[in-house]
C-alpha cells in the first residue's frame, strides 16, 4: 500500500522532469551527439568516437585559452573576494547611509552585461573616453587595443567594477546576521580588531563566502560578453578566453564536432573546479549544524 503511494508521487515531479528535459537534458544530449560524430551538409553524420575530444585536449589553442581563463579567474577571485569583504566591513550597520551604500553597490549589478562592455570600451578609448583621454594626457602609455597587458588590465578592472558588489552584498548580509553578543564578548575578552575579524567575522562569513567564491568562479570562468565587446578577444589572442574561443570555433568556423567536444570539456572543467572549491571550503566542518 505504502509502495503504491510512493509510485504515484512520481507524477507530481513529472512536469519538472519534462521541463528540465526540454531545457537542459535534450540540448545537452544534442551536444553529446555532435561531439562523437563528424557532420557534413545534407545531414550526413559519421561516427568518430573520442577523436574530437583528443584533438581538443591536445590542441595548443585550447591549452592557451584554458591557461588564460584560469589566470583570469584566479586574478578575479584574488581581487574581488578580499575587496568585497573589505568593503562590506566598511559599510555602516545602521543609519541613512546604509541604504545609500547598498543602492550604490547594487547599481553595477543592474546593468546588462553588453552595456557594461560598451561603457568600458568607450570609457577607455584614447580619443573620446574619459579614462583613456586622461591617461593619454598624463603621458601614460595605455592602449587596450594594441597592448595585451593594457587589454588585460582593462578587462580585469571592468569585471572588478561590475561584480565586486555581489561579493559585498553577500558579505554584508552575512555580517548583519552576526549577533551583537559576539562583538560584546570579543570586547570583554580584549580581542583586537584583527582578532575579531579573524575569529568571529570570518568564520561566520564562511557560508556566504562559499557561495560568493562559487558564483564568482563560475561567472568569471564563463565570461564572454564583456571582453567580446571591449576587445573582441584581442589584441591577437591575448584576451581570447574559453567561451570566446568556443564561439569562434562553433559559429565562426562551423566546426560543430570539435566545438561540441570543447563544450563538454569546458562544462566538466567548471563542474570539477566548483567541486574542488566546495570540498576545500567545507572541509573540517565536521558534523556541525548551521548555528
Amino acid at each position: 500500500m505504502q509502495k503504491k503511494l510512493n509510485q504515484k508521487a512520481w507524477f507530481l515531479v513529472l512536469p519538472v522532469f519534462l521541463l528540465v528535459a526540454f531545457s537542459a537534458i535534450i540540448p545537452l544530449m544534442t551536444v553529446v551527439n555532435y561531439s562523437v560524430q563528424d557532420s557534413f551538409g545534407n545531414n550526413e553524420f559519421f561516427w568518430v568516437g573520442a577523436e574530437w575530444f583528443s584533438e581538443i585536449l591536445n590542441s595548443e589553442r585550447f591549452h592557451s585559452a584554458l591557461g588564460r581563463q584560469l589566470l583570469f579567474s584566479a586574478i578575479i577571485l584574488l581581487i574581488e573576494i578580499p575587496l568585497g569583504i573589505f568593503i562590506a566591513l566598511k559599510i555602516p550597520k545602521q543609519g541613512w547611509a546604509v541604504s545609500l551604500c547598498l543602492v550604490l553597490m547594487a547599481l553595477p549589478l543592474l546593468i546588462p552585461w553588453n552595456v557594461v562592455g560598451t561603457i568600458w570600451q568607450i570609457f577607455a578609448r584614447e580619443d573620446i573616453g574619459l579614462l583613456g583621454y586622461v591617461l593619454a594626457a598624463l603621458d601614460v602609455d595605455y592602449n587596450y587595443t594594441q597592448n595585451s597587458t593594457d587589454a588585460w588590465i582593462t578587462i580585469i578592472i571592468m569585471d572588478v567594477w561590475h561584480w565586486t558588489s555581489l561579493v559585498v552584498l553577500l558579505c554584508y548580509a552575512g555580517l548583519s546576521s552576526i549577533p551583537d553578543a559576539y562583538y560584546q564578548a570579543a570586547k570583554i575578552d580584549g580581542a583586537s580588531r584583527w582578532a575579531t575579524f579573524r575569529y568571529i567575522q570570518l568564520p561566520k562569513l564562511k557560508r556566504v563566502l562559499l557561495i560568493a567564491v562559487l558564483l564568482r568562479f563560475m561567472d568569471s570562468f564563463m565570461i564572454y560578453t564583456e571582453p567580446f565587446v571591449v576587445t573582441g578577444g584581442g589584441p591577437g589572442n591575448a584576451t581570447t578566453f574559453l567561451s570566446i574561443d568556443l564561439v569562434k570555433m562553433a559559429i565562426g568556423q562551423f566546426d560543430l564536432g570539435p566545438a561540441a567536444a570543447f563544450s563538454l570539456i569546458y562544462f566538466l572543467i567548471v563542474l570539477l573546479l566548483s567541486w574542488v572549491f566546495y570540498t576545500i571550503m567545507t572541509a573540517n566542518e565536521g558534523k556541525t549544524n548551521q548555528s
Binding site: P179, A181, Y182, Q184, I188, G190, Y199, I200
Partner: peptide, 20 residues
C-alpha cells in the same frame, strides 16, 4: 573601554569562537 575594566560578562546566547 570594556577591555580595560576588570569585568567579565556572560550573555544570554552562548558565545564561543567557532574555529577554536
Amino acid at each position: 573601554p570594556t577591555e580595560e575594566r576588570n569585568i567579565a560578562q556572560v550573555f544570554q546566547f552562548p558565545v564561543i569562537y567557532d574555529t577554536m
